[in-house]
């Protein structure tokens, strides 16, 4: 049997908001360690990697490993039926055809159950090696979301340049150009507002704004976002999910032909 309970269903609601732009179907791998998902968008340009550790759940039981293929729009519809203060429990039996979502109101006077059919999916797994990145930037996630939104008005692509001075975002198009520079912040008491650059070598890479604007749907999950970059490898954009895990997005760069 598989059973995972989260007192804060709002976490799962936010996770679905963070993946539904990119994925229509995904296989959730459930094991003793927790719930993992790795899936690419249809164009195979970006990848979502989600990890929810079992010890982050309020109750977690997984008697045998399960791979559950789910429709992301359907799951998203079901989670929209939960109030943010509800507790959510995911439940499935061994060799399941369906998964059940149970939402309980705080005083348990309302219990809602939604059963969703599972789907068989061809699994494509990318082997992503441990990588030491040339630049790792931590910055406020809302600031990153705003920059992606603002610069995407100027062009389809955004160049991110990281140096010891800080990080620069730029876009160019028919209307003109846009540049936003963020300097490293001095030691600040408010870590959520900090911009921190760890740099071994300067990096300059160009990415599709459309995908970046999908990644920033994860902004409500965490006050800070971490961007990891090296020359000629995909960007990693990472958001911590409270004490339970993280979501990482990988994005292949654009290159001059």
């Amino acid at each position: 049997m598989f059973e995972a309970r989260l007192v804060q269903s709002v976490i799962l609601k936010k996770v679905l908001e963070a993946i539904k732009d990119l994925l229509t179907e995904a296989t959730f791998e459930c094991s003793d360690c927790g719930i993992q998902l790795q899936a690419m968008d249809n164009a195979h340009v970006s990848l979502v990697s989600l990890n929810l550790r079992s010890d982050g759940f309020d109750k977690y039981r997984c008697d045998r490993n399960l791979s559950m293929g789910m429709s992301v729009p359907c799951m998203s519809k079901i989670l929209r039926c939960a109030s943010s203060e509800d507790t959510v429990t995911l439940r499935a039996w061994d060799n399941p055809d369906t998964i059940v979502f149970v939402f309980e109101s705080p005083n348990r006077d309302k219990i809602s159950e939604y059963e969703m059919k599972l789907i068989n999916l061809d699994q494509e797994h990318l082997g992503i090696p441990e990588t030491l990145y040339s630049c790792v930037v931590k910055m406020p996630s809302q600031e990153f979301a705003r920059i992606c939104r603002d610069l995407s008005q100027f062009g389809d692509a955004m160049t991110i340049a990281c140096s010891k001075e800080g990080i620069k975002f730029s876009a160019a198009g028919d209307y003109g150009t846009a540049n936003v520079k963020l300097a490293q912040t001095a030691e600040t008491e408010n870590q959520e507002e900090a911009v921190v650059v760890e740099m071994k070598e300067p990096v300059k890479l160009t990415f599709s704004c459309r995908y970046l604007n999908s990644f920033v749907k994860a902004t409500p999950l965490c006050a800070q976002v971490q961007l990891s970059m090296s020359a000629e490898v995909p960007l990693v954009c990472e958001y911590q999910i409270g004490e339970i895990g993280h979501i990482r997005y990988y994005l292949a760069p654009k290159i001059d032909d």
Partner: peptide
């Protein structure tokens, strides 16, 4: 001209 690469250019698919 700018080209969009795919992730399979970097990582091995299994």
């Amino acid at each position: 001209e700018v080209a969009q690469l795919r992730l399979s250019s970097y990582y091995i698919m299994s």
